[in-house]
Write a protein that binds this DNA or RNA. Structure first.
Length: 420
RNA sequence: GGAAGCGUGGCUGAGUGGUUGAAGGCACCGCUUUCGAAAAGCGGCAUGCGGGUAACCGUAUCGUGAGUUCAAAUCUCACCGCUUCCGCCA
C-alpha cells in the first residue's frame, strides 16, 4: 500500500512502476475513483456536521415542542445522509480494491526485464565443481543412499510428495541447527510462528490480492502460509513499536506451503519444487529511512551469502529485474546455487525490502524522537530453505563411489563426515 | 463441545442513550523550584481523512461489522479475540 497523497503527487512515478513491474494497474482509474471519493466524503461530512450541530442544540433544548420540531427536521437530514452514505460506501469499496493493487516503486537500480531470465548477475562465488567421473543428479544420489523416498511420497501426498528419510532427515536437522547458531550470532531472535494464518496477513505482506491460487486454504477460510514472513510481519500488526528496539531482527522457522498452481510442467521431479518444505527466514523491522533499508538489505543478503560460503557451495547473486519483483518489493536479490547435473544455478534465497508498503497495510508504526508517528520499514530474506538446499549440496559434494561428503561446518551437527 | 464473563487512548482505569475524543492515575514532554538531581507545583500530551500559508476548522475512530434512534462507548444482532469453570484430548 502506498500513501494516496504520494500517489496523487507522483502519478507518473506510479505509472512507471506499473510498467516496470509489468503490472496492468492503471493509476488514472484510481485517481478518478479518488476524486469521486473526496467529493462524496466532503458532502457526507457536511451533512454529518449539520447533524452534529443540531444534535447538540437538541440536547440542551428544554421546551418539548421546540425539541420535537427539531427532531422532525433532523429526520429529513438523516434521509438525505443515508443516501449519500450509500454512494460513498460503493466508491470506497472500489477505491480500496484499487489501492490494494498499487505497485510499490522499484528502486532506480532495478534493471528492466520481463522475467527471471533477465535478472542481472552481480556476483559469482566459488569454483564450479569439476568431476573426474560422471556425476549423478540429486534424485539418484539421495534415492540410492535412502535419504529420500519419492515413490512413497507421491503415494501418500500425490504429485510433488516426498519423504526425507534416514540421513536425509538427519542432514536437514544438521542444517537447521547450524543455521540457528549462525544467524543467532548475528542478532536474530529465533521464532516458531503459526503457519495457519488469517487471510488479512497475506494482504499485509502483499501476497494477496495478487496470488490467490498459490495458497492452501482451510475450511475455516484461513490460509497456510507459504513463508514465515507472513506470520512474522503479522506479529506486530496494529502495534506502535519502541524505536529503541530497532532494528528488530527475527529468524523464523516454519513449514511453508505452496500450491505451485500454474507450474505443473516445471521441475516435475526432485526436491526443487515441492508443495511443503521448511525454511528459516530473516525478517527485519526498522526505522523509516531509505538509507537504513538499503543498508539492512545488503546485510540480510550478505548473511545468507556468508552462510552458503561457509558450506562451500558455489553460488551467484542476481539483481532481480522489474518484471520479477513482487507488488510490494522495492528491490530484490536472489542467491542461486550451482547444480552440477543441470549445469546451472538455481534460486535458494530472496532478499527484498519494501519501505513502508507492508507496514502500512499491517499498521505497524513507531514514534520518532520528536514524538511523530511513522510507519516502520520492513525487509526479509531467506536464511535457508530445506530440502531445496540439499539438491546442490549433495550434487556438489558427491564422490565417485556414490557417497557424499558432509560440509565441514555441518559435521559436528550431522555426526559423520560422509553419507554412505 | 457445555456454561459464565470481558474487550475503552502508550499503559492503567472511570464511564449504561444527549455539548464524551472520552474523568482519574501512570508514563512522556515543557516550565517553575534546585549548584545539580529527587520531590513538589503549573502546563502540555491520541490517530486517520478533508480543508487552510498558519493558528485552526470539519469529520471519523471506545474489538470488527450490521441494526435501533433526531442522537450510540452506552441499546440489539452477528462475528473476532481474551479470561474463568466443566467435559474431552495429543
Amino acid at each position: 500500500m502506498l500513501d494516496i497523497k504520494f500517489i496523487r503527487e507522483n502519478k507518473d512515478l506510479v505509472k512507471m512502476a506499473a510498467e516496470k513491474k509489468h503490472s496492468s494497474f492503471d493509476v488514472e482509474t484510481l485517481l478518478i475513483a479518488d476524486e469521486k471519493r473526496i467529493a462524496m466524503l466532503t458532502s457526507v461530512e457536511g451533512l454529518r456536521g449539520e447533524q452534529n450541530k443540531m444534535n447538540n442544540s437538541i440536547s440542551v433544548e428544554k421546551d418539548p415542542a421546540i425539541r420535537g420540531q427539531m427532531i422532525n427536521e433532523m429526520r429529513l437530514v438523516k434521509e438525505d445522509l443515508i443516501k449519500k452514505e450509500e454512494d460513498l460506501k460503493s466508491v470506497m469499496t472500489e477505491w480500496q480494491s484499487l489501492m490494494l493493487q498499487v505497485p510499490n516503486i522499484p528502486d532506480m537500480s532495478v534493471p528492466d526485464g520481463d522475467s527471471d531470465e533477465e535478472n542481472q548477475e552481480i556476483k559469482k562465488w566459488g569454483e564450479i565443481t569439476n568431476f573426474d567421473f560422471e556425476p549423478k543428479d540429486h534424485l539418484d544420489l539421495m534415492t540410492n543412499l535412502k535419504m529420500v523416498d519419492f515413490e512413497r511420497g507421491s503415494k501418500v501426498h500425490g504429485f510433488r510428495g516426498y519423504y526425507l528419510t534416514g540421513a536425509g532427515a538427519i542432514l536437514s536437522f544438521a542444517i537447521w541447527n547450524y543455521a540457528l547458531e549462525f544467524f543467532g550470532k548475528r542478532g536474530f531472535t529465533p521464532i516458531l510462528p503459526p503457519v495457519i494464518v488469517r487471510k488479512q496477513n497475506l494482504y499485509g505482506t502483499g501476497h494477496l490480492p495478487g496470488d490467490v491460487e498459490d495458497y492452501y486454504m482451510t475450511q475455516d477460510g484461513d490460509a497456510l502460509a507459504g513463508t514465515a514472513e507472513v506470520p512474522l510481519m503479522g506479529m506486530h500488526a496494529d502495534e506502535i513499536l519502541d524505536a529503541n528496539n530497532f532494528p528488530i531482527k527475527y529468524l523464523g522457522f516454519s513449514p511453508c506451503f505452496r500450491r505451485e498452481a500454474g507450474s505443473h510442467s516445471k521441475d516435475v521431479k526432485g526436491l526443487i519444487r515441492v508443495h511443503e518444505f521448511y525454511k528459516l527466514e530473516q525478517v527485519i523491522l526498522c526505522e523509516a529511512s531509505h538509507t537504513e533499508s538499503v543498508k539492512l538489505h545488503e546485510e540480510l543478503n550478505r548473511n545468507t551469502e556468508e552462510f552458503i560460503e561457509s558450506l562451500n557451495i558455489p553460488y551467484r547473486t542476481v539483481l532481480n529485474c522489474g518484471g520479477d519483483l513482487g507488488q510490494g518489493q522495492v528491490k530484490k536479490y536472489d542467491i542461486e546455487l550451482w547444480i552440477p547435473k543441470e549445469g546451472k544455478y538455481r534460486e535458494i534465497s530472496s532478499a527484498s525490502y519494501f519501505h513502508d508498503f507492508q507496514t502500512r497495510r499491517f499498521n505497524i508504526r513507531y514514534r520518532d524522537s520528536e514524538g511523530k508517528m511513522h510507519y516502520a520499514h520492513s525487509l526479509n530474506c531467506t536464511a535457508i530453505p530445506t530440502p531445496r538446499i540439499l539438491v546442490s549440496m549433495v550434487e556438489n559434494f558427491q564422490q565417485a563411489d556414490g557417497t557424499i561428503k558432509v560440509p565441514e561446518v555441518l559435521q559436528k551437527y550431522f555426526g559423520k563426515d560422509i553419507i554412505s
